[in-house]
Amino acid sequence: MRILFDDHIFSIQRHGGVSRCFAEVIAGLQTHPGVEVLLPFRRVINAHLIDQPDLNVCGFLDGRHFPGKRTLLRAHNKRLMRRALRRMSFDVFHPTFYDTGYLDLLEDRPLVVTVHDMAPELMPAAFPHPDMVHPGKRALCEAASAIVAVSQTTKADLVRLYGLDPDRVTVIHHGLSGDAVWAPGQPAGMGLPDRYLLLVGRRDGYKNFAGVAGTLAACLARRPDLHLVCVGGGPLAEEERRPFQEAGCAARLHQHTLAAPDLARAYAHAEAFIYPSLYEGFGLPILESFANGCPAVLSNRSCFPEIAADAALYFDPGTPETLHGALDRLIGDRALRDRLVEAGRRRARDFTWAAAVEKLVALYRRLPVHR
């Protein structure tokens, strides 16, 4: 069975959850008996795909940054993709993002589409132009032979908002990448405080840092040895710092950009991982925190209870003081912390890329194959 993937996410995303997931899936399929992965392109900007062995892809003009670099790369790779599609030497086409430009070339070949979240549809106010975030998503879902949703929550949102037959949507959870787990003895990267709470990823909009910043500042103000470390998301803006300045703890608010091994170490040494987001399609950082023995305090919204189950503490982001209560419980109760750490490690073992690949292969094999 020959599975054709396009370059889209790998030509526009240097790092990120969607590209990481597709890189893991492609690497798993590459070694799966009876499956041949077709990548007609060789140049990408994506570190996750480049890091996978035996895929024969490399960087595009590494070290050179200029306006239009991604546009130039996409234009080149799209020509290669259209050529591959015209040859029809594949059994299933699985695009990595929402490009409708290939639909006219598929003829009767099966199309599989993965939907990672429905954030623009559910929370349009969080986006300047929500209709331009995933402009081809609905059309691809309507044309698809099968749709993959990354959680039951995402499936329910997709079916409800697009009016799709639920039988066309298969849930395949993400797995945990090997470089996301800290191995004791690895050299330490950037120094971190002795005691800190950890927040990972973007903070704007529905990611809801603004909604909990005051609560986190109050928590730090009550504990002079506790810090808050934000990883990723770019430098902290003045309005993000303001609640901590007003609480007299601005010096204990930090932002770092960390490579995967250092991020894993940050999870492993944190007092707690906090995920205040109002919506996620899956929430990979939950698994990363669990696998590194970091107890998680999560928003009780969207897919978080589905992914974390009883291995985390939850709070209501509509009532931010419930976050303070959850952190008080966790920090003050060693037995609770130990229980959550153990439950989190067990829960993380339920999510593997090997299992995701097996489910995806089973889905491919249910589709009509053209010889």
Rank of each mutant, 00 (worst) to 15 (best):
F282N: 07
T154H: 01
D117I: 04
A146M: 05
P368Q: 08
V112H: 12
L55V: 14
A188C: 01
A247V: 08
P128A: 14
G205P: 07
F282K: 06
W182H: 15
E239M: 02
R83I: 08
E238Q: 14
F315P: 00
Q255L: 09
A268F: 07
P285D: 11
T352V: 03
I172D: 02
R252N: 00
T154A: 12
D194V: 15
V57M: 07
R252L: 02
A217M: 02
F209D: 01
G201I: 14
N208T: 05
R70H: 12
D6C: 04
N77P: 10
N208D: 13
F10R: 06
Y206R: 12
G68I: 05
M132T: 12
L367G: 02
V212E: 00
Y314A: 05
H227W: 11
H8N: 11
P184E: 14
G59N: 08
G175C: 09
H65P: 08
H65S: 13
H370L: 14
A47M: 09
T257Y: 15
T153M: 04
F5K: 02
L111C: 10
P276W: 01
P317M: 04
D54G: 05
R337T: 14
V159P: 00
V115A: 05
L73I: 07
W182T: 14
F273G: 11
V44P: 12
V200Q: 06
Y196F: 15
F93L: 03
G214N: 00
L140F: 11
D333W: 07
N56D: 10
L39Q: 07
P368V: 06
H8Y: 15
L122I: 10
E107R: 14
E271S: 14
G191W: 03
G189F: 08
Y267I: 01
E107I: 15
V133R: 10
R138A: 10
A84S: 04
P95Q: 09
G293P: 03
H173Y: 15
L367I: 06
A183F: 02
N300F: 13
G283D: 09
A188I: 10
A149D: 08
I307D: 06
G293A: 06
G175K: 02
Y279N: 06
P33I: 02
V231T: 12
V297Q: 01
G59S: 07
R20Y: 09
F315K: 00
H370T: 15
M118A: 04
A348E: 02
L287G: 00
N208P: 13
R86V: 13
V115Q: 10
R339C: 13
R2M: 00
T319I: 09
A143K: 11
L80I: 02
L253T: 04
I274P: 01
P40N: 01
P40V: 02
F66K: 09
L313F: 03
E271P: 07
I274G: 00
Y364T: 03
H173S: 05
A356Q: 08
N56P: 00
